[in-house]
């Protein structure tokens, strides 16, 4: 019996848009925190260290709320979510959020009250927070991509795409909110955004290969997704090509437009949502019935 002949595609109904929102907010939150930590730590950029961290925490909190109240069928049972820390991606997610959020909290605290005991541990907390924040988009991407049940998702490229997108948004958002800081920083930000989108393009091409020419099981959902306006405009044009071109333009002309970073952040935000939502929406189970 040819496998090709007996594939049964059925759209997965477990993950809907709230999960896409969660992945997006959480991912950006994590990126924000780790970026803010780095900028504060390396460049002593205080406002970012303070408010950037807070924004990240806010995003995390929001992500958590969305998860609990919009996605979970039984929000109160969230208290059990750490029961399977050994193997469950969701448990890890929760741990990461907690670590990153908690770390950030203690990292930010000294901006407001002076607790001498904390001073020595600040780097430690910040580091934990940054690492956990960095890992969040990776692990939450892994949560989606780990199971074999949805072949379209079953690729390490998914966490990579999520990670890059999250950082792309944050790297654009920081200068948009706090100003580019200095010439050199503006250049670095722009370079980072450009690189991120370049890698994202590469990642996407690899993903396209995986889904379009790779295993037949993955093709089905991808083709469905490929046809959708939301995906073409939302992710490909707005979320990928536009930021790539804009950041490239700014980078090579050296002309940093005043609205540039804001536009980049917004475009990648929209693109990030489109990417996650479309991927979830077009996740098809491939049931292995023998006929």
């Amino acid at each position: 019996m040819a496998v090709e002949n007996s594939l049964h595609f059925e759209r997965q109904e477990a993950y809907e848009w709230p999960l896409a929102v969660y992945l997006l907010l959480g991912g950006i939150g994590g990126a924000f925190i780790s970026l803010s930590f780095i900028l504060h730590y390396l460049f002593s950029w205080s406002p970012v260290g303070n408010y950037g961290m807070l924004i990240g925490m806010g995003l995390f909190a929001l992500a958590g709320l969305v998860l609990i109240f919009l996605d979970l069928e039984r929000p109160l049972n969230a208290i059990y979510s750490l029961n399977n820390i050994k193997t469950s991606g969701i448990s890890w997610d929760v741990v990461l959020i907690a670590l990153s959020f908690g770390g950030a909290f203690f990292y930010v605290l000294p901006f407001y009250v002076s607790i001498p005991a904390l001073e020595g541990l600040r780097l430690f907390f910040g580091g934990i927070s940054a690492i956990a924040g960095f890992l969040f988009p990776v692990i939450s991407g892994g949560l989606i991509s780990a199971p074999v049940s949805v072949p379209l998702w079953h690729t390490p490229l998914l966490p990579v795409l999520f990670l890059i997108n999250s950082f792309g948004v944050s790297v654009s958002a920081v200068p948009a909110i706090f100003g580019p800081g200095s010439e050199i920083l503006a250049f670095i930000f722009n370079l980072a955004v450009f690189m991120a989108n370049l890698v994202s393009l590469g990642g996407f091409i690899a993903f396209y290969e995986h889904a379009h020419n790779g295993p037949v099981e993955a093709r089905y959902g991808f083709h469905e997704m490929w046809k959708k306006f939301n995906f073409q405009i939302g992710f490909l044009v707005v979320g990928l090509l536009f930021p790539l071109l804009l950041s490239g333009y700014m980078l090579f002309t050296g002309n940093f437009l005043s609205w540039g970073f804001g536009a980049l952040a917004l475009a990648q935000l929209i693109g990030g949502f489109a990417l996650r939502n479309c991927l979830l929406k077009h996740g098809y189970h491939t049931y292995p019935w023998p006929y």
Binding site: Q12, A14, Y15, E73, R74, A146
Partner: peptide, 23 residues
């Protein structure tokens, strides 16, 4: 009693064996 209803298992099951017993 302890199920969160996160539906991760539904997504993960390759055989479509699970569903939500909803409100």
């Amino acid at each position: 009693d302890t199920c969160l209803g996160c539906k991760a298992c539904m997504a993960a099951c390759p055989y479509g064996a699970r569903y939500v017993y909803d409100k």
